[in-house]
Design a protein around this nucleic acid. Structure first.
Lengths: 150, 150
DNA sequence: AATCAAATGCAATATTATTGCATTTATAAT
DNA sequence: ATTATAAATGCAATAATATTGCATTTGATT
């Protein structure tokens, strides 16, 4: 939800997870936190083109394992990353919210506060987690479209 | 749900969509229809290793466009394909069912007859489609685990 | 300031996906 | 049946994406 965070928040975050506070990591965090949508891996790469690709992979993996960010695949199967809400921990992701993928701007929105209605599965299926995906047009793109057709 | 289909069903299917009845296509169809779960692209490739990789890509794309199969990404972001239920058509996918990804055997189950409860989105989001994902342990793997621990 | 482990960057390699073109194949027309 | 054709396949080349090993650098600790 892109609540404003400052430099020190990120340093604390890394501290908490026993990760060293390096410049690439802090930059990745601040980029992701500055956006209201998830950030695609390609976007990350092009914006942080001075950071080695491999380093980026490793940072993202480390963050994901620690429960700092979560990964979500968009309609094209490309990985997007977003900050986890507070209740995620190491190996305990609770990102059971709605992921909305805009078909126009391709952005992925994490709608955290939208909790899913309970779904009962057929006999024998033991569920660990749910994720609901929706695709369509996001508010921004809906507005733009309306402005054009007016 | 892997209803038994014979050779002629597949030929009809291809006919209906104005696709030529070629041997690679028929093989892909029969493989997918023989399974109760979605088929991962790697699996398809290894089983059909005599079919060119490129051909496989093109077949899958063609089938998807025509609404014969649908693509679903599993937990690892690898593409899986499954036959569409009858109400899918060209550019009109209605695979709004539950995709269950077993964390043990990695299989993706399409639970067609499970319809999602209605979800209301925040102001401004216009939804075209929903997909619900769940992960956990499938009946087979649950059984196996129970047998072992007994 | 010195030490040590962790993280980064680079090179090499592997995997996955795409494009262009020559050849083959299924269909439709003769 | 034979032939013409458009479509589909297979191959080669290339692009894009992901992984591994290792030398170097950096952050934290003493």
């Amino acid at each position: 939800m892109a609540q404003t965070r400052n430099k020190f928040d990120f340093e604390d975050l890394l501290d908490k997870h026993h990760l060293k506070k390096t410049s690439p990591r802090l930059r990745v965090l601040s980029m992701m936190a500055s956006k209201s949508t998830a950030t695609s891996q390609p976007d990350l790469e092009s914006v942080m083109n001075d950071i080695d690709r491999v380093t980026l992979y490793r940072i993202l993996n480390a963050f994901e394992e620690k429960g700092i960010i979560h990964k979500v695949f968009d309609l094209n199967g490309t990985a997007n990353y977003a900050m986890c809400s507070s209740n995620c921990g190491e190996h305990h992701h609770h990102d059971e919210h709605l992921h909305f993928n805009c078909t126009v701007c391709k952005n992925v929105y994490c709608l955290d506060d939208l909790h899913l209605p309970p779904v009962s599965l057929p006999e024998g299926f033991k569920t660990e987690g749910f994720t609901l995906y929706a695709n369509g047009t996001c508010p921004k793109c809906t507005k733009k479209a309306a402005a054009k057709s007016a």
